[in-house]
Design a protein around this nucleic acid. Structure first.
Length: 890
RNA sequence: AGGCACGUACGUCAAUGGUAGACGGCUUCCCUUACAAGGAAGAGGUUGGGGGUUCGAGUCCCUCCGUGCCUACCA
């Protein structure tokens, strides 16, 4: 058999995925057990414009680990993939491409432009689906969805119509976040608030019939042209007499009132605020409270309107600002300008400064939906957030929820299913035909706006399963089991899915929400395109292999972590370790093969021990995965495989396995080794799909699939995940083995400290009054001898060793001596033993103090107290033996 | 401004209120016939400071210092 000495991940990553996909292993239909339990996840749909980043790789790893695990546990497992049409991003991307051709989308017109976007989508969209295959993501591609698929679009229209009919969706004139660059409205969640160094301008407004002037402070002087009032706090003594009076608004011929409003903070600025209802959200609210007119002085392109006055009309908002400041200065009404840092709203996509504008948009009332979600949380604690701290954040946000602006002035997206008659009547319908019927006319114009991308995403868990049709998929897979996502879209997406799911399905869309950590760069900064500090997962795959990368990501869990390539390197080494362990097993496999029953009839100690370790690992691993404790899961696997299996078991079994003579014992040992390896590969598979499949395929013997997948072409993917059989966990074997491990470690320690050459064979002497222990050591004599390179191992009731020996006292009262005639420095040996003695004393002192506290004895659980007593007794024994040893050296 | 996390070995991170661990790095030795991407041994911590609850605190409470995130923003 020809197996390279080093694992080559690229080799393994090349062909398995294609076979898995082609054979339909990812589809739940592969499961032939009609009573199989169901597990389902819908993927957070990546943007069609996106390419894979660390965040995706992280989420996908968790989802794939869980899906593969559950599939192997016999669940009818579905991980449903798909993509989001990503309204603004995609439109921007295609617009930019057009610009290079010297065209704008308006040159093409709506229909052609949308066609062009589809063309782009079909030709170059969805890069990420190729990359996901590389990741090994076991998604069911036969069910792949796109938010603009006809079926999903139908779900969107259905929901829109239903909510409209119920009065939850309405059209209204409101102040909104407007992006002058993208020419569309944005929801509050699509706006970034960034700190900005700016200026605060103090403007003086003359008071009518008075010499007094009222000074207002503003960061946006250009909006003063749209002022319709000045507001002060009703309790502000300074201005009490001015309330109700009138101000002559400079640069205009308008007179505006001074009003009192609680919103005004007397402490800030001058305590007097100019009110511009048409261009500031707070002023807008104040305007409503005081019935103030709204004067629009800035247009959707952020240019001044005719209402701003002839002098300013047509100017850009920033030019107008300069001009107005100049003009105030000339009038002697500019009191001062001070530097001021404030936060400014920018478009999340194009970073243009948002202009608050009054505009007619579609909104969704959230009260009723919000209450559904809050009730679900308080009544059934659903969804369950992991980590649970996010539950508070989620609930808190819901409680403060405001109406959602759902229309967008884009061409790419779900066009709003609303039509207008020539008379301006609004007809909302599922289709134009239905609208015509309702309206009784064919002369209809459809609303040009599209819906916020998140509107369709909110339906994702059921629209992808066929809703509004009552499909089998919907019945089988809804509600889904768990949602895995980053924390920054809990509001944008998670909460909205819950609300929509409850509203239209009557059930929560997922039982659990697992929130992943964030991968930061090595400086602790967020990875971002603009900072160029992102690490490309594909590069990491190329350098260290997919499996090593997945293991690195899996152990991140829910905490934020700095990216550290060393970590991946160590898991790359782990993959190599697995490879070489398997290589050893297979190079010594002649005449043997995997045979599950062999584990049940293990007789020798190390065999019972590894079977016990294997089953305990399986038990702990299942628990960890089910509990979203991925870090622990990875640690458990790593140590089982490297420490227990490689460092100890293979070494202990080596003599039997590599025996030159063919014998029943050799075959049995080889079979057992292969069988343990085969189970270990199953345990590793959800985390490391490629290397496990590559090796599993090469293992000889009868490798059984899970009963639910009987008849499928063999693959480790469809084997049964070991459950961790309680009857195979053998605590006695584990503690006996522990004694052997300790003995070997102590001898190695002595060898190292006494500078004995690794190749040199030395005799060792073990003494123990405990007959059982002696028996354990005796039966492992060969193995001990080999692992410590002993020339002779003598075991007796009493330690019978020459004075010139290095010594150690083991747990359970056993003593160890390594005769070192001529090699030993008695003084050095005495110091070494004394150091050990000190360690024991320190521990004993701590425990004695604990026991000396009467409160501990009376209040701590008895079990705990006994533990301490036993430990003290053990230390005392060890310590006195050690003391004896030291004295013998004198 | 409020809210929420976090602060543990040189680095990155673990640890149901019960003797602080892992991996990497570092030191010494070894190319021993699965693996030098390996093996053996070892050094390294008053868990950010202070206080409290408890028989017992890295873990719970208070406070201070530092860091990060979220939400809302004072024009």
């Amino acid at each position: 058999m020809d197996i390279p000495k080093q694992y080559d991940p690229k080799e393994a990553e090349q062909h398995h995925y294609e076979r898995w996909e082609k054979n339909g292993y990812f589809a739940p239909e592969i499961n032939k057990d009609p009573s199989a339990p169901v597990f389902s996840i819908v993927i957070p749909p990546p943007n069609v414009t996106g390419s894979l980043h660390m965040g995706h790789a992280l989420q996908h790893t968790f989802m794939d680990v869980m899906t593969r695990h559950k599939r192997m546990c016999g669940y009818r497992a579905l991980w449903l993939p798909g993509m989001d049409h990503a309204g603004i991003s995609t439109q921007l991307m295609v617009s930019r491409a057009l610009k290079k051709e010297g065209k704008s989308r308006h040159d093409l017109g709506r229909e052609q432009f949308v066609e062009r976007v589809w063309k782009w989508k079909n030709e170059s969209g969805g890069q990420i689906t190729v990359q996901m295959r590389r990741e090994g993501a076991s998604v069911d591609w036969s069910r792949e969805k796109f938010t603009m698929d006809e079926a999903l679009s139908r779900a969107v229209r259905e929901v829109f119509v239903a909510l409209y009919d119920e009065g939850l969706i309405y059209r209204g004139n409101r102040i909104v976040n407007w992006c002058p660059q993208d020419q569309t409205v944005l929801s509050d969640l699509e706006v970034d608030k960034l700190p900005q160094a700016g200026k605060l301008y103090y403007l003086q407004y003359p008071i009518k019939n008075s010499d007094r002037r009222l000074t207002v402070a503003t960061t946006r002087p250009e909006t003063m042209l749209g002022d319709t009032a000045v507001a002060v706090n009703p309790n502000d003594e300074r201005y009490r007499d001015l309330v109700g009076q009138t101000v002559l608004l400079p640069l205009t011929d308008r007179e505006i009132p001074i009003v009192a409003d609680e919103y005004v903070d007397p402490e800030f600025g001058t305590g007097a605020v100019k009110v511009t209802p048409a261009h500031d959200p707070n002023d807008y609210e104040m305007g409503l409270r005081h019935n103030l007119p709204q004067i629009v002085v800035i247009d959707p392109h952020a240019k001044m309107t005719a209402d701003a006055g002839a002098k300013y009309s047509g100017l850009d908002r920033y030019q107008a600002r300069e001009k107005i400041v100049e003009d105030f200065e000339q009038l002697g009404l500019l009191e001062k300008v001070v530097d001021y840092e404030f936060s400014i709203s920018k478009c999340e996509r194009c970073k243009t400064v948002i202009e608050p504008l009054i505009s007619t948009q579609w909104f969704m009332k959230m009260d009723q939906l919000r209450d559904l979600a809050l009730e679900m949380m308080s009544r059934e604690q659903k969804p369950r957030f992991v980590p649970e701290t996010y539950e508070k954040i989620y609930t808190n946000w819901l409680e403060n929820l405001r109406d959602w602006t759902i229309s967008r002035q884009l061409w790419w997206g779900h066009q709003i299913p609303a039509w207008y008659t020539p008379q301006g009547e609004v007809i909302v319908a599922r289709s134009e035909e239905e609208a015509r019927e309702k309206a009784g006319t064919t002369e209809l114009t459809q609303d040009p706006d599209v819906l916020d991308t998140w509107f369709s995403s909110a339906l994702w868990p059921f629209s992808t399963l066929g809703w509004p049709n009552e499909t089998d998929d919907l019945k089988t897979f809804y509600p889904t089991t768990v949602l895995v996502t980053a924390r920054d879209i809990i509001f944008l997406w998670v909460s909205r899915m819950v609300m929509m799911g409850l509203k239209f399905m009557g059930k929560e869309p997922f039982a659990d929400v697992f929130i992943t950590g964030t991968i930061l760069d090595s400086q602790g900064q967020r990875m971002s395109k603009t900072k160029m500090n992102g690490v490309d997962p594909i590069d990491v795959f190329d350098k260290f292999g997919v499996d090593a990368t997945r293991l690195t990501l899996a152990q991140v869990g829910s905490t934020d972590i700095r990216w550290n390539e060393k970590q991946v390197e160590s898991y790359r080494n782990f993959a190599n370790k697995i490879w070489n362990a398997a290589r050893f097993c297979m190079l010594n496999s002649e005449g043997a093969g995997v045979e599950p029953e062999v584990l049940e009839r293990s007789t020798s100690l190390h065999d019972r021990w590894i079977v016990s370790r294997l089953n305990k690992t399986a038990r702990d691993l299942n628990a960890a995965i089910n509990d979203y404790q991925f870090h622990e899961a990875v640690q458990t696997l790593y140590h089982f495989f490297w420490d227990d299996f490689c460092d100890w078991y293979i070494e202990l079994a080596k003599a039997d396995v590599t025996a030159e003579e063919q014998s029943a014992a050799r075959t049995e040992a080889r079979t057992r080794l292969l069988t343990v390896l085969e189970q270990a590969l199953r345990l590793l598979h959800p985390f490391m799909p490629y290397i496990t499949e590559e090796l599993w395929q090469r293992l000889p013997g009868e490798k059984q699939l899970h009963a639910a997948y009987a008849g499928a072409e063999p693959t480790v993917m469809l084997t049964a995940f070991p459950e961790g059989a309680a009857n195979l966990i053998d605590e006695a074997a584990e503690s006996r083995m522990q004694a052997i491990i300790e003995l070997i470690s102590r001898v190695r320690n002595i060898r190292s400290e006494m500078n004995i050459k690794p190749g040199e064979r030395i005799p060792i002497i073990v003494g123990s009054p405990d007959q059982n222990l002696r028996r354990v050591f005796s039966s492992a004599r060969e193995q001990i001898s080999r692992l410590v390179r002993a020339s002779d191992v003598s075991i007796g009731e009493r330690l019978d060793a020459p004075r010139a020996s290095a010594r150690a006292v083991l747990a359970g009262g056993a003593e160890l001596a390594v005769p070192l005639e001529g090699l030993i420095d008695f003084e050095q040996e005495r110091r070494r033993l004394q150091r050990e003695q000190e360690k024991l004393h320190a521990e004993a002192a701590k425990l004695e103090a604990q026991l000396g506290n009467p409160n501990f004895v009376s209040r701590a659980p008895e079990e705990r107290v006994n533990e301490v007593r036993e430990r003290i007794a053990a230390i005392a024994q060890q310590s006195s033996q050690l003391q004896q040893t030291v004295e013998n050296l004198q």
